[in-house]
């Protein structure tokens, strides 16, 4: 079976600065890819290129076989994307916002209601459905962003820091949700919480200064350092290129 996410030589330059430097990888159905790297390593830029928000300087990305530049609408239909910071419209209610997303995604009438209910249920937002998004705490807003990404049950999920700002219980729930959905989807999550990678990811990619420096299962990665700790591997891999640069 071909991969649901295919990235080939993706590169982004801002002026003279190369934020992402020939990144290539693919993610098959059933895989949960942890996308790791220090702040400024190029995680968000890579995800934005994959989602079609930033135009790459070089290389290409395909979602479910659709090129994100040349066949953008088809690619975006197959994608559920949680942008960095989980942006949403503060003046809308949770339900109003999800109804808007459902309508944009082409659901109307009873089907739209069913989709919204399902997304509210998955992300435990039912109690606050009528509340204005501007009145919600950071953790709830993050879940609104997640609900928006899950609404159309896409084959590909790209989540930029899905558990940022959540309390330990909520983190646990979101991780459980990701694990539950994993078999039928290709999922990429960016994070700098290393325990999360060990908990939910089947594979991890570490990028530093815009380049892929490791691509393996969390267990294989951990073995690369005598201590067997993912954190030590992460520091060893990401600290050195920064010094060299």
């Amino acid at each position: 079976m071909s991969a649901l996410i295919e990235i080939e030589g993706l590169t982004k330059r801002f002026g003279g600065f190369t934020a992402v430097d020939h990144v290539s990888f693919s993610v098959a159905r059933g895989e949960v890819l942890g996308f790791l790297g220090p702040n400024g390593a190029g995680k968000t830029t890579t995800m934005r290129m994959l989602a079609g928000f930033i135009t790459p300087s070089e290389g290409r990305a395909r979602i479910d076989g659709h090129d994100v530049q040349d066949d953008a609408l088809a690619a975006r239909r197959a994608l559920g994307f949680l942008p960095e910071g989980a942006p949403s419209y503060p003046e809308m209610t949770v339900e109003g916002f999800l109804r808007f997303i459902a309508s944009i995604r082409g659901y109307h009438g009873g089907e739209a209601s069913a989709r919204v209910e399902h997304a509210l249920g998955l992300t435990a937002l039912v109690p606050v459905r009528m509340q204005g998004i501007d009145t919600l705490s950071k953790g709830f807003r993050r879940r609104v962003g997640l609900a928006q990404a899950l609404l159309h049950d896409p084959p590909v999920l790209v989540l930029d820091e899905p558990t940022d700002g959540l309390d330990p219980n909520q983190k646990h729930e979101v991780r459980a949700l990701i694990t539950r959905m994993a078999p039928s989807k290709a999922i990429v999550i960016s994070t700098h919480i290393l325990e999360e990678v060990a908990a939910v990811c089947t594979r991890a990619i570490i990028i530093a200064a815009g380049r892929v420096v490791a691509d393996a299962t969390p267990a294989e990665l951990a073995r690369q350092h005598p201590s067997g700790e993912l954190e030590d591997v992460f520091r060893a891999l990401t600290a050195s290129p920064a010094k060299a640069a």
Binding site: F53, P83, E84, P87
Partner: peptide
């Protein structure tokens, strides 16, 4: 300012 432009432009909207 809100960052919702990233959401809006990654939805299947021309």
């Amino acid at each position: 300012r809100l960052g919702t432009i990233e959401l809006l432009l990654t939805l299947p909207v021309g």
